[in-house]
Design a protein around this nucleic acid. Structure first.
Lengths: 196, 196
DNA sequence: AGAGAATGTTGTCACTGTCAACATTGCAAT
DNA sequence: ATTGCAATGTTGACAGTGACAACATTCTCT
């Protein structure tokens, strides 16, 4: 018996960090405070995350993997024979995921993250981009914006879905634009990105 | 004669801060370091920004005001009789401004900003949203997505333009999606948001 | 000329991330 | 089963940081 070794400190730190980000933002993230909350010495987290930025990178890498999974699930709700409707559902899936995971999503949207991206994060991101690119390519072969370059379409789709999600999850823009968030609203917005 | 009073410390701090953000990100922002760079005591900036977050809020408020100006300028390049083309130019204007002001834009995209938004920032943001909303309303009266709610359209337009800009200005996404940025590319992307 | 506001300085405090040296535990090879 | 090593956790230290209070200088307005 011993509580010398926490057993699952790495995950505990990540979960606590996400909670802190959700409550007070990335700015408020403190490794020492997290350690104290978990009843562990102030330097313990360093065994799992050499630097604070590594923790952020891990959170964002996980988040992109989850988002990818979620978007794929939404995509599968449409038959393969409806590639354009599938795009629409993927956009919806992105927005809904962001609304249900505001803390993680805000970590993803932090511009600083790109500065300390490790290989795992890059790989998560590549996979996400690939999933979107594939779906776009499929849709194009069925007539969706046929004469537009794949790169342009990818930037548009990723940017629009994430940007719209950012607006919807941002408290400030929310208070300025101020609108009630319902499933109907999300569907209507997704229809603007990719008409169903 | 005296260099006791700097004379324009407030603006100097803002400019230096933007330079730091551009070079090393918001995370690297340090009031003490900025003070040292400007040859001023470590507590001098506090006379102009009570807290670090106030500096960020001021930078972002300025940035939205500039963006609004820039978007309006782009809008005026189209005649009033072409409200849809005007929307397209406004989207282009947003993207170009972001590409030319990466540091400021990344500050705007920082999700933490919404936590310490002061009245000035909210006002800047309201004005920006109003300009977009007006242009959208005008376009709708000329047939652009006539049967879509104004709120939905506003969220879509703001989200898509900012999201696409975020993708284009983000080094990480840039390295993953990896595409050469040209004026032609920007035009093509803006056409996806609002067909010219 | 002088008073009060604005601006800058100095000193201090608690807190933070990071590192190095050390302690404990888990595990795998023997 | 023992032992040796890697993984994990602890303690202590250091420089940097934001924020505050008390004080100094300068500007502005009358």
């Amino acid at each position: 018996m011993s509580n010398y070794h926490h057993g699952n400190l790495r995950n505990a730190v990540i979960e606590r960090a996400i909670a802190v980000i959700g409550a007070d933002g990335v700015e408020a993230l403190s490794l020492r405070k997290i350690a104290k909350d978990l009843g562990v010495s102030h330097a313990a987290p360093a065994r799992h995350f050499k630097a604070k930025s590594d923790l952020l990178a891990a959170i964002v890498a996980d988040a992109y993997a989850e988002l990818t999974k979620s978007v794929l699930a939404a995509s599968n709700a449409a038959g393969k024979s409806q590639p354009i409707r599938r795009l629409n559902l993927m956009a919806q899936g992105t927005i809904f995921w962001a609304l249900e995971n505001k803390a993680k999503f805000s970590a993803m949207m932090n511009p600083d993250v790109s500065r300390f991206a490790d290989e795992q994060l890059k790989s998560s991101l590549r996979e996400f981009a690939q999933v979107i690119a594939d779906a776009l390519s499929d849709a194009q072969q069925h007539g969706f914006r046929k004469n537009v370059s794949g790169e342009v379409l990818l930037i548009y789709a990723v940017g629009a879905a994430q940007g719209v999600s950012a607006v919807l999850t941002d408290d400030l823009l929310g208070s300025v634009i101020g609108v009630e968030q319902t499933a109907t609203l999300v569907e209507a917005i997704a229809d603007q990105i990719v008409p169903a």
